[in-house]
Simulated scan of single mutants.
Amino acid sequence: MNLQTINENLGRVEISPEVIEVVASIAATETKGVHALQNNFASGNFEKLGKKYRGKGIKVDTKNDTISVSVYVSLFSHANVHKTAVKIQKNITNSIKNMTNFEVKDVNVHIINIKS
Rank of each mutant, 00 (worst) to 15 (best):
Q89N: 05
G11A: 04
H35A: 13
N40E: 08
E47Q: 13
N108M: 12
S43K: 04
K83M: 11
G11C: 03
A42W: 07
R54Q: 14
Y72T: 08
V71W: 02
T93S: 08
A28P: 05
A28R: 01
I15M: 06
A79P: 00
L75N: 00
K63N: 13
A24F: 03
A36M: 15
A42C: 09
N108Q: 12
K115G: 09
V109Y: 02
K63P: 08
A36R: 13
Q38E: 15
T93V: 08
K83L: 12
S68A: 12
I114A: 06
T62H: 06
D106T: 10
V69Q: 00
S70A: 15
T66Y: 12
D61C: 10
T66M: 13
K63W: 13
Y53Q: 14
I67P: 00
T66R: 13
V13C: 05
G50S: 14
V71P: 02
I88E: 01
T93N: 07
S25D: 05
N98S: 12
V109R: 02
K97M: 10
V23G: 01
I112H: 09
Q89K: 04
K52M: 15
K97C: 07
T62A: 07
E47W: 04
V104N: 01
M99K: 00
N98D: 12
E8A: 12
I88H: 03
V13T: 07
Q4A: 04
I114V: 09
